[in-house]
Simulated assay, not measured.
Amino acid sequence: MTTWPSQIRGITLIELVVAMALSLLVLSAVVTFYISLQRHVIERSQLLILQQALSTTARRLQNDLIRSGAFGQYGATLSPKGSTRTVYISSEGASVQYAYWDDRDPGLAKPIENVVWQFDSDAQKLKICRSVTSLVSGAKDISFSNASGCTSIFEPNFIAISHFEVTGTAVGASYHSNQFITFVIQGHLRAKASVTASIYRSFMVRNAP
């Protein structure tokens, strides 16, 4: 069968342009979806890192506070200088101090750990100050208003702490009481303030003076 030239139909310029435009639209949608998915994955990873950092810090603080005041085999309790409680908490809740006897190594010359946590709201940093003393001097020689040698808990260029607050309520008789402690830590990424996380803890501290 003979095909006449008039019956042969090629692709017109308009059809080619329309096909290219549709292809570009599909490609653009795919690229946009991929970028959005990648951004979501990155933000989710950053959030998990932030949550893990706050969780690790909260666990550390809680474990320390639970054993605060412990004086090992001496059957006594330790409290910061000027404090009537095992755990000293500042009036605004931005600073907390405690001490405990570190019995991991019986041969330690200075086995008493004195710890102060301080929140710097201006710099958005949570700092920890640690010092060690002997059994003779004890924790009462360390004033909660004179902490030094402090370091930031979190990498300051990566994580900012927007809120840190500790509260304590005495439980029991005034001359011998436990403390019900609560604290909250809120933070965000320095480079992306929209990535935020917070953690809350409440527990009983039983090593009362």
Score class of each variant (00 low, 15 high):
residue 34 Y to L: 11
residue 30 V to I: 13
residue 43 E to D: 15
residue 45 S to P: 14
residue 38 Q to C: 09
residue 46 Q to G: 01
residue 25 L to M: 15
residue 41 V to R: 12
residue 29 A to Y: 04
residue 29 A to P: 01
residue 43 E to W: 09
residue 31 V to L: 13
residue 44 R to Q: 12
residue 37 L to C: 03
residue 31 V to S: 11
residue 29 A to W: 02
residue 22 L to K: 07
residue 22 L to T: 14
residue 52 Q to S: 08
residue 26 V to L: 14
residue 45 S to H: 12
residue 31 V to Q: 08
residue 27 L to R: 08
residue 33 F to Y: 04
residue 22 L to H: 08
residue 23 S to N: 11
residue 36 S to C: 05
residue 28 S to M: 08
residue 51 Q to R: 02
residue 37 L to E: 03
residue 49 I to H: 06
residue 25 L to W: 11
residue 27 L to D: 07
residue 35 I to K: 07
residue 36 S to G: 15
residue 34 Y to I: 07
residue 31 V to I: 13
residue 30 V to Y: 06
residue 33 F to C: 05
residue 38 Q to A: 15
residue 48 L to P: 00
residue 34 Y to H: 08
residue 39 R to T: 15
residue 43 E to Q: 15
residue 27 L to V: 13
residue 25 L to P: 04
residue 33 F to T: 11
residue 52 Q to C: 00
residue 35 I to H: 08
residue 47 L to K: 10
residue 34 Y to A: 13
residue 24 L to I: 13
residue 29 A to E: 00
residue 38 Q to W: 07
residue 51 Q to N: 05
residue 44 R to I: 00
residue 51 Q to V: 00
residue 45 S to W: 06
residue 49 I to L: 06
residue 43 E to G: 07
residue 50 L to S: 02
residue 33 F to P: 00
residue 45 S to T: 15
residue 25 L to H: 09
residue 44 R to S: 13
residue 51 Q to K: 07
residue 49 I to A: 05
residue 42 I to T: 13
residue 47 L to I: 01
residue 34 Y to W: 05
residue 36 S to I: 02
residue 43 E to T: 13
residue 33 F to H: 01
residue 45 S to M: 06
residue 36 S to A: 12
